[in-house]
Computed example of a mutant assay.
Amino acid sequence: MPKEIVKDHPAKASNRRVHLANERTFLAWIRTSIAIMAFGFVVERFTLFLKQMSYVLGQSNVDIPLPPSHGYSAMLGIFLVALGSLISILAYVKYKNVDAQIDSDSYQPSSFLNILLSISVLAVGMFLIVYLLQSV
């Protein structure tokens, strides 16, 4: 009987390592989503910062600071915050799916979240390029 416990022990330890690796991957996705949301907040508030700096430096011909702009930077910032939120939700769903697949020993890799993030970053990058080219 003790031999059976010894035989099962390496499999359980290996399974634990796989679960911990899955959790580390989930936490990496959560850090990525937080970074995207933080970047979205910075983008949304950058126009307000520029207007306040122009007022402080006396380069504005208006006597009072201007309200925040609701142009491209606001839309892009809100989009990035929403994207970060969506990625965190999808990361949790993927984490739970992989967790169940590990338990049932039927893991099937999926790259949906990777593709979504890559396409989103590409779209944001292209938008920023067009936005910066228009402002030159």
Rank of each mutant, 00 (worst) to 15 (best):
L27W: 15
K3V: 07
P68S: 00
L116G: 14
R17I: 03
A35Y: 08
E4L: 08
R45P: 00
L128G: 06
V93G: 12
L80F: 07
V136K: 09
V56Y: 07
D8M: 06
L116H: 09
I64H: 03
A82N: 13
I87H: 15
S110R: 08
Q134T: 08
A21I: 03
K7L: 05
L50K: 05
A11F: 13
S118E: 08
T25H: 10
V6Q: 10
K94I: 12
V18K: 13
I119D: 07
V43E: 11
R24G: 05
S60L: 01
Q52N: 08
S69M: 00
G125N: 06
S110Y: 06
S110M: 05
S88I: 15
S111T: 12
S118I: 08
D99E: 05
Y95T: 04
K3A: 10
F41H: 09
A11N: 10
L48A: 03
Y55G: 02
I89S: 04
F49I: 12
F127Q: 11
E23I: 06
Q52M: 05
A82M: 14
L48K: 01
L128V: 06
P67Y: 00
L66V: 02
S54A: 03
V18P: 08
Q101C: 01
G71E: 03
A21D: 06
H19P: 03
I87N: 15
L113F: 10
A91H: 11
R24D: 08
L122H: 09
V136P: 00
G77M: 01
L90D: 08
L133S: 12
D8H: 13
Q59C: 01
S88G: 15
Q101M: 05
Y92C: 11
I115E: 10
R45L: 10
I115V: 13
V18S: 12
A82T: 14
L133Y: 10
A91L: 06
